[in-house]
Design a protein around this nucleic acid. Structure first.
Length: 458
RNA sequence: UCCUCAGUAGCUCAACGGUAGAGCAUUCGGCUGUUAACCGAAGGGUUGUAGGUUCGAAUCCUACCUGAGGAGCCA
């Protein structure tokens, strides 16, 4: 379709309305009724569902901004128009014209009295739209993800995602951060731990899809002071859980002249800001998703803070098998947050289980100045970050300990040779955040086209 | 990679060793206020694949394929 959104669609003369109708979005229905009630309007959309009863038909139209019930009366319309509407199939594309009014009996509160209709495409009866208003299984829905996005719940989740992303950008843009994007093709592992997707790069060369922009972020922070990058990230781990994707979006701020406490302050501030924006601007979507928003309204500063040492003690007292030195499993994370209605910040993890670039605590080198923010309600780690090593000697030592090739990190070591300063930052996973906002069981519904262990289509 | 569970009509499921069935979707008919509308009728099947047990297998057994959930790893 090359038709521009506002272009007029050719009409048969018989159907041409006597008064030109103004194209409006369903989302603006309330506004229209308030200010221009009685004026003819047209809605360009798709048939969501249709109920009929003899001489009256109720087509429900969606246009991407909402759903609108229309009413077509046999007595008020030409025979062909009424019959065409009566037999219209799900997801057929159409433009309806008529008068809009408030109507308590219609879902959404507004209703359009149909005066004329253009049907752009009547979906064939031989191959009807596969997603019916009844229940479907996950496998079937995932195979039809390109169509599933038209459904109410999926639509709502993606709009919440949009709000989360926009508020992340707004937060950093209005707090002195510069967007400096980092490459997606990278020559080697950023952290040396997770598995990477390997890509053929012309003749003889291999590159990898980025698993974090952090190392480049550190260079950018030394150039701009406060920066963030925001893009897709790839992990070739064979994780098969409801919290994992192989391709996901991550925002990573990095600040020069910053320590662990600065990192914690920004992380907390950011989370509170996003939650506030979602609650303010996505009420309808959260309602569609049946999200209990009281669990989000309690998200305010300050977040409970604890050290890794304390967290281990709490977990042990709650019956966890965890020993000092181990990383938290998903059940551990849920246990840690169950007494709070806010995200929990845990800092000073064992240096052993953290990436090579984490700054060890001067007084206790066995712990690193890293912090994780764990979301409540079992949504797990949404933020991980901390203070980076700024001392050249120490960083070289850590590279050796991790058996990482010094040569590949030479440019990274330059950052410690030329005006090194304490600095830090974190990464926040967008999809886990959105899953938490929406109260979703599975992360796959938070991204339009999820890429998972055994699913790369559509 | 490991463990557990599931594949029956386009979809969601039932039938659990003895004639494969219902709801939705589709088609036809009825209904002027429906809310996943309702009522009546019709069409629609190599029960994931291959083998085995049995007089008889959707059902029991074996292997494989596909999917889901969990573990580990992580955001």
């Amino acid at each position: 379709m090359s038709t521009a959104p506002d272009a007029a669609v050719p009409l048969d003369d018989a159907d041409r309305p006597s008064v030109p109708a103004k194209r409006i979005a369903i989302g603006d229905a309330a506004d229209h009724v308030k200010h221009s009630a009685g004026q003819p309007v047209e809605i360009a959309g798709w048939l969501y569902n249709l109920r009929k009863s003899g001489k009256i038909v109720f087509p429900i139209v969606r246009d991407g901004t909402g759903l609108l019930q229309c009413v077509a009366l046999k007595t008020a319309l030409p025979e062909e128009t009424f019959e065409a509407l009566k037999h219209l199939t799900q997801e057929s594309s159409l433009i309806v014209r008529g008068r809009l009014r408030a109507e308590a009996r219609a879902a959404g509160g507004y209703e359009l009295d149909v005066e004329s209709v253009d049907i752009l495409q009547h979906v064939s009866e031989e191959h009807p739209y596969p997603i019916t208003p009844k229940d479907h299984g996950v496998d079937f829905l995932m195979d039809h993800r390109h169509l599933w996005l038209r459904s109410k719940r999926q639509h709502a989740a993606i709009r919440v995602r949009h709000e989360v992303i926009k508020s992340i950008r707004d937060y950093f843009d209005s707090n002195g951060f510069t967007l400096v994007d980092t490459p997606i093709f990278t020559p080697s592992a950023c952290e040396g731990t997770s598995t990477l997707f390997e890509v053929d790069y012309f003749e003889d060369e291999k590159v990898y899809l980025t698993q974090s922009g952090q190392l480049y972020n550190e260079a950018n922070a030394m150039a701009f002071g406060k920066v963030y990058c925001f893009g897709p990230t790839f992990r070739a781990e064979k994780s098969k859980t409801r919290r994992h994707l192989t391709e996901f979006w991550m925002v990573e701020p990095e600040m020069a002249y910053a320590d662990l406490e600065d990192v914690k302050r920004v992380a907390e501030d950011l989370v509170v800001y996003i939650v506030g924006r979602v609650l303010e601007n996505r009420k309808e979507e959260l309602k569609t998703l049946e999200r209990d928003t009281s669990r989000l309204e309690t998200v305010a500063k300050p977040f409970p803070r604890m050290s890794y040492d304390e967290a281990v003690k709490i977990l042990q007292s709650k019956g966890s098998e965890i020993q000092w030195g181990g990383d938290f499993g998903n059940t551990d994370e849920t246990l840690l947050t169950e007494d709070f209605h806010r995200p929990v910040m845990v800092d000073r993890y064992p240096t052993e289980i953290k990436a090579f670039y984490f700054q060890p605590d001067e007084r206790r080198p066995e712990v690193a100045l890293g912090v994780d923010v764990i979301a409540p309600e079992g949504y797990g780690e949404i933020i991980g970050g901390g203070q980076r090593i700024h001392d050249l000697k120490l960083l070289e030592q850590r590279l050796d300990q991790h058996q990482l090739p010094r040569e590949a990190f030479n440019w990274y070591l330059d950052l410690r040779r030329f005006g090194t300063v304490p600095h830090g930052g974190f990464g926040m996973g967008v999809e886990r955040f959105v899953a938490w906002m929406c109260g979703l069981e599975h992360i796959r519904e938070t991204i339009p086209y999820p890429r998972m262990l055994y699913r790369t289509r559509p």
